[in-house]
Amino acid sequence: MIDEVLPGRVACVESFGDVPGAVLLGEEAALVANAVDRRRAEFATGRHCARAALARLGFPPAPVLADERGAPVWPSGVVGSITHCAGYRAAAVSVDVLSVGIDAEPCRPLPDGVLEAISLPREREMLARLGDAQPWDRLLFSAKESVYKAWYPLARRLLGFEDALVDIDAGGTFSARLLVPGPRVGDVELRAFAGRWLAVGGLLVTGVTVS
């Protein structure tokens, strides 16, 4: 499922639920030492997916720790992203792109009041034009999550919901224009992101890569 919104040079592994016997390696357990059982299980499955994806690139099993903001710390030369929601966990890694971000969400509308907190007026106008074929507000949230996950490794700073203007195409793509200065990629300032989305089986998934 997640591989359908990412290019072939990104290795993806997903699980529709927690993997029985998924284990945490090394210091990973400390990251969820105070979490409830459900959170530990989804975290372990996310790390299981991450190691399986890394194995497809030839990397041996190793802990996938987290930085000060909770973002996964990958082996040198690897970029990647992990996501989880009810009934779904996935990881995507690559050595052939500059950054990747993925997100999964239940395919249902956001709770009342959330859309106003995560969107710009122009985005809400766009959602109204799209009609009711999908829970577009949830898709907007997911797209922004994927954009942030692709942004953060390059910029190493937060990106607020109000800092990128997302435009969704009903055909399965979206774009995000940065409203703040972007990170430099080589000699070029990154000003926009492009992604794909998919809705199937009660789930929404989004993916962004920076090449």
Rank of each mutant, 00 (worst) to 15 (best):
L120E: 01
S94F: 03
R138P: 04
E105P: 12
G171N: 14
I102T: 07
A143P: 05
G131M: 09
L115W: 02
L165F: 08
G101E: 08
G171E: 15
A170P: 02
R156V: 03
G113V: 07
A150K: 09
P111A: 11
D103C: 00
A133E: 08
L139P: 02
F141Y: 14
T173C: 14
M126V: 09
L159H: 12
D103V: 01
G113L: 07
E162I: 03
W151K: 12
L110I: 06
L110A: 07
I168R: 11
P153S: 12
A104V: 13
I102N: 02
A150T: 12
S119V: 01
K149D: 01
Y148K: 02
E123H: 09
L130W: 09
T173G: 15
R122D: 02
Q134I: 09
L159S: 12
L120I: 03
E162W: 02
T173W: 10
E125M: 09
L130P: 10
P153V: 09
F174L: 15
D103Q: 03
P109W: 08
D163E: 11
L98T: 02
L139F: 00
D137K: 01
E123M: 12
V97S: 03
L140M: 07
D169G: 15
G160V: 01
L130V: 11
D112S: 14
A143Y: 09
L140C: 08
I118C: 11
E145W: 03
S119M: 01
S146Y: 00
L154C: 14
T173D: 15
Q134N: 14
I168E: 13
A133W: 04
V93L: 01
W136M: 05
R124G: 02
V166D: 11
L127R: 08
S175R: 14
L127I: 12
P109N: 10
A128F: 05
L154V: 13
V114R: 10
L139G: 03
A150D: 10
L115A: 06
V100N: 06
W136L: 03
D167N: 15
C107I: 05
A128S: 11
F141W: 13
A143F: 10
R156N: 10
R129M: 06
S119Q: 00
Y148S: 04
S119T: 00
W136Y: 10
K144Y: 06
L130F: 07
E125R: 10
Q134Y: 15
L165N: 13
D169W: 11
